[in-house]
Amino acid sequence: MLRKSHWLSLTAALVLAGCGGGSDEPSKFGAIAYSASTTKAVMTWNENSQASASGNAFKECGGGDCAVLLEFTSCGAIAGGPKAGGGVVVGVASASTREQAQIDANNSCNAKGGVSCQVIGGLKARCAADAS
């Protein structure tokens, strides 16, 4: 015979299972790809899998040297700036908010020697679950 506490535990487990609760798996994914030769940056979000997010970012980037720099399930951002000795520096970051992701990407770019790092080509931070 089950005790009252066991019935409550069993009921809670069934309710969570019926609601889809209890899963730590993210439901949406994003990625950022960048080509140093073309300085083109591409961000994908609201994708159903990480493979899809990364594959689409890479494909849209288009350059032979495109690389996926960041995969994210929270929010992601990219920043770029000129390097004191010439060239361009790029930083990427993910965080729980768009604002923090952009701050962290700017700081990453600056830490790599970038000067006045900022959003690249108007590509503002996005969250993986943002609507298209």
Results as ranks from 00 to 15, higher is better:
residue 92 V to A: 04
residue 78 I to W: 09
residue 91 G to V: 00
residue 85 G to H: 13
residue 66 C to L: 08
residue 96 S to T: 12
residue 26 P to F: 06
residue 60 E to N: 13
residue 67 A to I: 11
residue 42 V to S: 02
residue 55 G to I: 01
residue 45 W to S: 09
residue 64 G to N: 12
residue 51 A to F: 09
residue 66 C to R: 03
residue 81 G to Y: 01
residue 45 W to K: 10
residue 69 L to F: 01
residue 99 E to N: 13
residue 46 N to Y: 13
residue 28 K to V: 04
residue 69 L to N: 01
residue 84 A to I: 10
residue 84 A to L: 14
residue 83 K to V: 15
residue 26 P to S: 09
residue 71 E to P: 03
residue 99 E to K: 14
residue 31 A to L: 05
residue 58 F to M: 14
residue 77 A to W: 09
residue 80 G to F: 07
residue 95 A to F: 09
residue 87 G to A: 09
residue 28 K to L: 11
residue 44 T to P: 01
residue 84 A to P: 01
residue 94 S to Q: 10
residue 79 A to N: 00
residue 64 G to A: 11
residue 94 S to D: 10
residue 77 A to V: 08
residue 37 S to N: 14
residue 41 A to G: 12
residue 81 G to N: 02
residue 57 A to Y: 02
residue 58 F to L: 15
residue 88 V to D: 05
residue 26 P to N: 08
residue 87 G to Q: 07
residue 45 W to D: 05
residue 94 S to L: 07
residue 94 S to K: 11
residue 84 A to G: 14
residue 53 A to G: 03
residue 89 V to T: 07
residue 82 P to I: 05
residue 72 F to G: 06
residue 88 V to I: 13
residue 31 A to F: 02
residue 78 I to P: 09
residue 66 C to P: 08
residue 54 S to Q: 13
residue 76 G to V: 02
residue 37 S to M: 11
residue 98 R to P: 04
residue 97 T to I: 05
residue 29 F to H: 07
residue 36 A to G: 10
residue 31 A to V: 00
residue 44 T to K: 01
residue 65 D to Q: 05
residue 88 V to Q: 14
residue 26 P to D: 07
residue 49 S to N: 06
residue 53 A to E: 07
residue 35 S to V: 00
residue 63 G to M: 04
residue 95 A to N: 10
residue 90 V to F: 00
residue 73 T to Y: 06
residue 45 W to T: 04
residue 77 A to E: 06
residue 97 T to M: 09
residue 95 A to Y: 01
residue 58 F to G: 09
residue 67 A to Q: 15
residue 78 I to Y: 08
residue 44 T to Y: 07
residue 74 S to E: 10
residue 65 D to W: 04
residue 51 A to D: 14
residue 73 T to H: 06
residue 67 A to C: 11
residue 95 A to K: 04
residue 27 S to M: 10
residue 42 V to M: 00
residue 53 A to N: 06
residue 62 G to D: 08
residue 28 K to Q: 12
residue 69 L to T: 01
residue 36 A to V: 12
residue 65 D to V: 04
